[in-house]
């Protein structure tokens, strides 16, 4: 059944302590080429019917108003996955 994937990232200019911690660990384990890590979240909205344009628009809205904190996060992608 199809799902809409909403991806949320911390705003680029703000500190991402989780990403920083993971980047530090990666550096310690030898992955020196990775210069930075930023960690966001992926949210799946499941449907048991085909997804419409209106659903995607609604998901974008839900993403911005409910699933993310607009003060410190951005919705970076809303995509549809069929399987």
């Amino acid at each position: 059944m199809p799902k809409i994937i909403v991806e949320v990232m911390p705003k680029e200019v703000l500190l991402d302590p989780q990403g920083k911690a993971v980047a530090n660990s990666l550096h310690r384990t030898g992955h020196k080429d990775i210069t930075a890590v930023r960690i966001g979240k992926r949210i799946e909205l499941h449907f048991d019917r085909p997804v419409t344009e209106a659903d995607v628009a609604a998901a974008q809205k839900i993403g911005e108003s409910f699933l993310s904190n607009a003060v410190i996060e951005d919705v970076v992608a809303v995509t549809v996955e069929d399987n």
Binding site: P10, L14, L15, D16, P17, K20, A21, V71, I72
Partner: peptide, 10 residues
């Protein structure tokens, strides 16, 4: 942004 994000472990 007008806000700051803290990192207590740091």
């Amino acid at each position: 942004p007008a806000v700051q994000v803290g990192d207590p472990f740091a």
